[in-house]
Simulated assay, not measured.
Amino acid sequence: MATTNTIGVDLAKNVIQSSIVSTSGIELQNTELTRTKFAEFLAKQKPSLVAFEACATAHYWARYAQAQGHRTKIIPAKAVTPFRQGHKTDKNDALAVAEAANRPNIKEAPLKTIEQQGIQAIQRSRELLVQERTSLSNHIRGLLLEFGVVIPKGFAALNYRIPFVLEDAENGVPHIYRPTLHRMFNRYLKLREDIDFLNEQVKQIVKQNDGCNRLTAIEGVGPISAVLLFSTLGTGEAFKNGREYSAYIGLTPKQYSSGGRANMIGISKHVANHRLRSVLIQGARAYVHKLKEPKTPKQRWLWELIQRAGYGKAAVALANKNVVRHGHC
């Protein structure tokens, strides 16, 4: 598709700043628009490269721009910052996005389809409820400990012990607190019910979605890993190969090389998709620890790596290999 101008967009909740830069690098316009006016603006423009800084609503507007005949890019904020000149203002940010969009080797964030965003929304809601359940269980345990009531670790122990705590009038828990404890426990049970519902929904998504279903055949990849991998990849156009996808997740070693000498210093703690990387490594670790008698070439490779480097590094290497394979699919 032949494009004319580059449109850099700085998104916000109610107002959107857009900078139009010509093919010769001259800024033609830099205006603030409402959401409605911005939609009309995109519909009127000739086919252009429309670049967004990766943030809330970026995927929605990128899909809308594509529907209007434009080519789109979503650029991580870290890649935009070096091109900002002057103070941090909406105008300067929009111009910086347009500048970054035309630079070579700028890594894009993958554009997600509406289905992938829906799956991602389900998974993030599940994670929120899991965090709330853990927080609430710790809250209940901590308060009861102040009254001398000790509940062992684990959700099963909490489920079993709390009804007995409520029934026992002589355990030291004050009567004034008991109605609140009852309500908190009911809230905990409702969270457990909602998590079970979302877990079942994830399983159904994996069964019905061919891409997710095929991912579960990979070693150490379960339903949660599958939906996260599928929703994170986007259309796949942002990555040249599986290696780039693995680097985006944060499974490849950082490189600090100079003078022709390559120096690998381990995976990054900061530049990574921490949520997905953690799930993939946990799944790979479980598979690695269960491997006893290698039969396939991949299992033999993994077994030799375990003997040479240990279970931890072998798990990361397996997760990396799985993602590289997925990126080629």
Rank of each mutant, 00 (worst) to 15 (best):
residue 213 N to A: 10
residue 193 E to R: 06
residue 107 K to Q: 13
residue 325 R to P: 06
residue 225 S to W: 09
residue 133 R to A: 11
residue 34 T to K: 11
residue 280 L to I: 01
residue 311 Y to R: 06
residue 95 L to K: 14
residue 234 G to W: 09
residue 83 F to E: 12
residue 61 W to N: 01
residue 321 K to T: 10
residue 160 Y to G: 09
residue 237 E to P: 01
residue 126 R to T: 09
residue 126 R to C: 09
residue 267 I to L: 07
residue 199 N to V: 02
residue 100 A to L: 03
residue 321 K to H: 08
residue 205 I to C: 11
residue 185 F to L: 01
residue 243 R to L: 00
residue 303 W to G: 04
residue 31 T to V: 13
residue 234 G to I: 05
residue 35 R to G: 05
residue 177 Y to R: 05
residue 323 V to Q: 00
residue 144 L to I: 00
residue 206 V to K: 14
residue 258 S to R: 09
residue 14 N to G: 05
residue 130 V to K: 13
residue 244 E to T: 00
residue 185 F to S: 00
residue 57 T to W: 05
residue 27 E to K: 05
residue 22 S to D: 12
residue 322 N to M: 06
residue 78 K to H: 07
residue 241 N to Q: 14
residue 161 R to G: 09
residue 62 A to C: 05
residue 225 S to E: 03
residue 207 K to L: 15
residue 188 Y to T: 06
residue 252 T to L: 15
residue 9 V to W: 01
residue 15 V to D: 10
residue 96 A to L: 08
residue 299 Q to H: 08
residue 302 L to E: 13
residue 165 V to R: 01
residue 226 A to P: 01
residue 99 E to L: 13
residue 84 R to K: 12
residue 274 H to F: 07
residue 159 N to S: 09
residue 176 I to H: 15
residue 319 A to H: 02
residue 98 A to W: 12
residue 171 N to G: 06
residue 68 Q to P: 11
residue 328 H to M: 03
residue 303 W to Y: 15
residue 104 P to I: 10
residue 173 V to P: 00
residue 74 I to N: 12
residue 265 I to A: 07
residue 286 A to M: 12
residue 199 N to S: 00
residue 52 F to V: 13
residue 259 G to W: 10
residue 306 I to K: 13
residue 211 G to M: 11
residue 299 Q to W: 07
residue 106 I to T: 07
residue 229 L to C: 01
residue 299 Q to V: 04
residue 224 I to C: 02
residue 39 A to S: 07
residue 186 N to P: 00
residue 107 K to M: 12
residue 263 N to L: 09
residue 187 R to P: 00
residue 150 V to Y: 06
residue 52 F to Y: 14
residue 3 T to V: 09
residue 274 H to Y: 12
residue 59 H to D: 08
residue 223 P to G: 14
residue 211 G to K: 12
residue 48 S to Y: 08
residue 86 G to V: 05
residue 97 V to A: 04
residue 127 E to G: 02
residue 132 E to I: 01
residue 262 A to F: 04
residue 73 K to L: 14
residue 201 Q to Y: 15
residue 1 M to N: 04
residue 301 W to E: 14
residue 68 Q to C: 15
residue 160 Y to V: 12
residue 157 A to D: 02
residue 225 S to I: 02
residue 149 V to F: 03
residue 24 S to K: 09
residue 50 V to N: 06
residue 205 I to E: 13
residue 134 T to G: 08
residue 124 R to L: 13
residue 327 G to M: 01
residue 84 R to T: 04
residue 89 T to I: 12
residue 104 P to N: 03
residue 36 T to V: 12
residue 22 S to H: 05
residue 115 E to Q: 14
